[in-house]
Amino acid sequence: MLNLLYKEWKLAVHPTGYIFLSMGAMLLIPNYPYAVVFFYQTLGIFFTFMNGGATNDVFFTTLLPVRKRDVVQARLFTVIALEVLQILLAVPFAVLRCQISPTQNLAGMDANAALFGLVLVMFGVFNVVFLPLFYRSGYKTGTPYLLAVLAMTVVVVAAEAVIQLTPALKQTLDTTAYHPLQMAVLAAGVLLYAVLNLAAYRLSARSFERLDL
C-alpha cells in the first residue's frame, strides 16, 4: 500500500491538488460562503482523475503487482489526504478570522468547528458519489464529477438553509463564538465522513474489480 501511495504522490496527483490546499486563506474574507472555499479541492481531485486519463495511470498501475482493490484504496487515501489537509490548513485561518474580525459572516455559516463538520460531510458525499461512478469505467470523469458536485451542493445548501431558518441552530452554529454544539456537529461530521468513505471504497472496489480494462 505504501508503494502505491508513493506512486500516487510521485506520478498521479495533479499540481492543482497542492495549489488548492492554500484556499483555506479565503476564510479571511469577512463575508463569503465558506463551503465554497472547500469546493475548490474537489476540482483538484477531479483534475487528478482527469489527468489520469491522459497519463494512462489506471493501465500503468494495474499492470504492477497489485490487486485492483488496492488501486482503489490508494486513490481513496490520496483523496482523503487532500481533503483533510485542506481542512487542517484552513483551521489557522478560521481562528485568525474570528480573532481579527469577530463580526458575523453575512454570506453563510461562520468559520467555526461546525463549519468543518459540515465540510467533512460535504467531502464524504462527494467521495461516495464520484469514486464509485468513476470506477465503473476507469476513465470517465465528467459525468461522475457533475453528479458528485450536484449531490454535494444539495447537502450543503440544505444544511445552510436549516441552520439559517432555525433560530436555535443559527445562534449556536452560525457564530464566531464557541458553543459546545459546534463540537458535536464536528464529531458527527467526522463519523459521517468515515462511514461515507468506507461506502465509497466498497462500491468503487466492487465496480473496478468487475471492469474489463
Partner: peptide, 11 residues
C-alpha cells in the same frame, strides 16, 4: 505510453 510529463528516473 504513460505519464508523458514525468522523467524516466521518476517512473
Amino acid at each position: 505510453n504513460y505519464y508523458p510529463q514525468s522523467a524516466l528516473k521518476t517512473i
